[in-house]
């Protein structure tokens, strides 16, 4: 699940470097996202389901990552995908799971890093975009954060948002 997406990342960077070396040096091709999943003192803890998607006015939302219980028998973990309810409505309900290169296992509390190429983000057109991060936890709550970004992006920090309950700080940066 993880290695194919890495291959795509490297491939993307390489081809950009080969075909347009001048542009590649100046314009970032990758977004690094750090999502802090809070440590919660609760009697029954389950790692949250997390969906990350990109919105742009006038185009369908594009899911870029889903962390869910992807290793259950008979794919039973998909039963709770709809609890990530805004994402489910915006994009999830049209998808099939597991989604190659997009879905993966839930992640533990702490700072979780994930990177996306411009193509993965669906940000091929210049313009304003929003990265949306939604977390829903079994027997717990739900929280959603939005971070606007634009493309072409500038190298360095690109934005941040902080959750109060199911998500901690979320930052994006470009390189």
């Amino acid at each position: 699940m993880k290695s194919p997406s890495r291959t795509i990342l490297i491939g993307g960077t390489l081809s950009a470097a080969l075909t347009a070396p001048v542009v590649a040096a100046a314009a970032p091709a990758t977004m690094d996202v750090t999502i802090t999943i809070p440590q919660l003192k609760v009697a029954e803890y389950h790692r949250p389901y997390v969906a990350i998607w990109v919105e742009k006015a006038g185009t369908p939302p594009k899911t870029v990552a889903v962390w869910y219980d992807d290793d259950m028998q008979k794919n039973e973990g998909t039963k709770w995908l709809r609890d990530v309810r805004q994402w489910w409505r915006a994009s999830g309900r049209t998808m099939k799971f597991p989604a190659n290169g997009i879905s993966g296992a839930t992640r533990a509390p702490g700072a979780q890093k994930i990177s996306f190429s411009r193509a993965q983000l669906g940000a091929t057109a210049a313009g304003e975009y929003t990265l949306v991060i939604e977390a829903a936890r079994e027997v717990g709550g739900r929280e959603l954060l939005r971070i606007p970004f634009s493309w072409p992006a500038k190298a360095g920090a690109g934005g941040r948002a902080a959750g109060k309950t199911e998500l901690g700080a979320v930052t994006i940066a470009f390189r």
């Binding site: 008979k74 794919n75 039973e76 998909t78 039963k79 709770w80 709809r82 309810r85 489910w88 999830g92």
Partner: peptide, 10 residues
């Protein structure tokens, strides 16, 4: 029990 559902064996 629900009107909006996901999953493979619903």
């Amino acid at each position: 029990s629900a009107t909006v559902l996901s999953g493979d064996d619903v």
